[in-house]
């Protein structure tokens, strides 16, 4: 029965994955094509295997530097964002204090003002803080962009963790930090994995602010480089597609690494224990 059930699921998943991958195949096709026009053929399967786009990208003298910049910014954003979100979400989930509801509301409200005109004041702020041309400035902006969702997600998850666990730990003489560090955080690994991926993505794909704030190509991030293949009249789609693929690989690798934390049963196990 279970095997048949799995067979059905596999059939469904294979069909669904293929359907999902279909549009993305054109991107692959364009990346492995020598010419720079946009692929419009009906057939999304790559018809040639030309590595010149990748060669040009990897051959760029600044490629390594820009990749490092991107990794630095995204990693630091993830670290800062997840850390701050964990502590804040813990407070929102476990404490009752004046301003709690207002704080939660404020988090939601921050997401509501459209970001279209934000570049101008953010530029002034960064200039004032002396963070123009500094990757740290990007980290600051990206982490604050990611934090509201992370707090909400983690708070929701913390709410589901039974308090009995903490009760018993308190009996054993644990302080709040021990509770937070030894009980809540390990149990929340799935949610932390999700927020980490989200924070990483927020920082990883952004290019407008990075292009506006950075005054030197040494300081550009990879998406800025990729976006620079889009011109006013034409776009070099071959380079762009190759760049898009390069940019998506680390995201998938990160997800692959994180997904071992998305396994079930942890909560149940510790309740029993």
């Amino acid at each position: 029965m279970a095997r048949l059930d799995h067979a059905f699921k596999h059939v469904f998943l294979v069909v669904f994955s293929v359907a999902t991958l279909f549009p993305a195949l054109w991107v692959v096709k364009m990346a492995f094509r020598a010419d720079q026009s946009f692929a419009t053929s009906m057939n999304p399967l790559p018809t040639e295997f030309d590595l010149s786009n990748f060669a040009a990208l990897f051959g760029d003298a600044l490629f390594g530097r820009q990749l490092l910049n991107s990794l630095f910014v995204a990693a630091l954003t993830t670290a800062v964002g997840v850390f701050l979100a964990c502590t804040a979400a813990y407070a929102f989930s476990r404490f009752r204090f004046p301003g709690r509801r207002a704080g939660l509301m404020f988090l939601l409200v921050t997401q509501m003002f459209p970001g279209t005109l934000m570049t101008i004041p953010l530029y002034s702020l960064m200039e004032m803080l002396g963070l123009l041309d500094a990757l740290l400035g990007l980290v600051l902006v990206y982490s604050t962009t990611a934090i509201p969702f992370c707090i909400y997600m983690l708070k929701g998850y913390f709410d589901t963790i039974p308090r009995e666990l903490e009760e018993s730990a308190i009996m054993d003489g644990a302080g709040p930090f021990t509770l937070f560090w030894r009980i809540i955080l390990p149990l929340s690994r799935p949610a932390i994995a999700v927020t980490a991926l989200f924070s990483f993505m927020t920082a990883w794909n952004e290019y407008i602010l990075a292009a506006t704030f950075m005054g030197d190509e040494q300081a550009y991030t990879l998406p800025v480089k990729v976006q620079s293949f889009v011109g006013d009249y034409t776009t070099e789609w071959g380079y762009f597609a190759a760049g898009a693929l390069i940019v998506s690989v680390p995201v998938m690798a990160l997800f692959f690494a994180l997904q071992k934390h998305l396994v079930g049963g942890l909560t149940a196990g510790s309740v029993k224990g």
């Binding site: 101008i120 123009l132 290019y207 292009a211 005054g215 889009v230």
Partner: peptide, 30 residues
């Protein structure tokens, strides 16, 4: 020093940086 700025970000960047005194000496645009 020549700096390539993505076309998408060019106008914003010039309009923001030049009045603040962070702009380039010379720039190219339509």
């Amino acid at each position: 020093r020549a700096l390539a700025v993505p076309y998408d970000a060019f106008v914003d960047k010039v309009s923001l940086a030049v009045p603040k005194g962070n702009g380039p000496d010379v720039f190219i645009f339509g």
